[in-house]
Design a protein around this nucleic acid. Structure first.
Lengths: 140, 140
DNA sequence: TAAGATTGAGATCTCAATCTTG
DNA sequence: CAAGATTGAGATCTCAATCTTA
């Protein structure tokens, strides 16, 4: 009786996580983006202005040092640049370069296609139900 | 109109799954295990005998080098040992130590409690529905 | 001292290259 | 050459310690 313990639903849940994340990441790969890079680029695109690394970290629910490194790589890719904040010299903001903006747009299109493929397996009613159940699972 | 593109359901899915994985990992942390370590230990416990690293990699849907490193850390923890396969000198098997076996049992108990807490938010019918929807989403 | 960012160390992962054995 | 495992390099993450500025 030493079977795999994670309850069926937990196993299913984690499996679905890897599955979905893997598909989205794969869709982004040919255009030179990963999910973490895409998300950061999207935050900046949505804001329409340079954002402090602190803000990016909070919005991403991750540690600050993670953003530091992610921005390092994005800067090496030429998609983002670090700019000083004249009002607070402790703060550093990340700014989208034109290339970064274009890349984000390309990423969005690639993701939309991947999502269509993924969601086409579920009727609209099922999608709605899945949303509700996932939200309930996460609770307060 | 540069809002976060991932469709609501994709965002919800990734969020929920990260949430669940985080909770399970947190439940394992006080006993000195991570989800990846626990899963490998559980494979060995379920098999009841040493398994080739190749088998562990296939079953985990990951690359072989990943298992090599995971076993390195597990061996450093004293939970697993590498044993030679007399029939094929290329193959190396991972074997649970007594400490590894005990740790796996402790991990299972910790996970069961965490799962109870997680699933208590959903009535049985909802759990069933969630399972079905996730299975359908992953397709064949 | 608080807050912002960075660095260093280490856990998980991937991929490509390599080495040994079949 | 195939298949097993490993190594080296690098991407994502976390945590603890450090450095600068408020």
């Amino acid at each position: 009786m030493n079977e795999l313990p994670p309850d069926q639903i937990t196993v299913q849940l984690l499996g679905a996580l890897g599955n979905v994340a893997g598909r989205l990441d794969a869709a982004l790969e040919p255009i030179g983006l990963s999910l973490p890079k895409y998300r950061l680029l999207s935050q900046l695109a949505a804001a329409g202005e340079p954002l402090p690394l602190r803000t990016l970290a909070d919005h991403s629910s991750c540690v600050r040092s993670n953003i530091t490194q992610l921005v390092d790589r994005l800067e090496a890719d030429g998609l983002v640049v670090r700019v000083q904040d004249p009002r607070d010299r402790r703060s550093i903001r990340a700014e989208l370069t034109p290339a970064g903006y274009e890349r984000q747009v390309a990423g969005r299109k690639a993701l939309e296609i991947a999502e269509q493929a993924l969601l086409s397996r579920l009727p609209a009613a099922d999608r709605e139900a899945l949303m509700v159940l996932l939200g309930r699972l996460q609770g307060a």
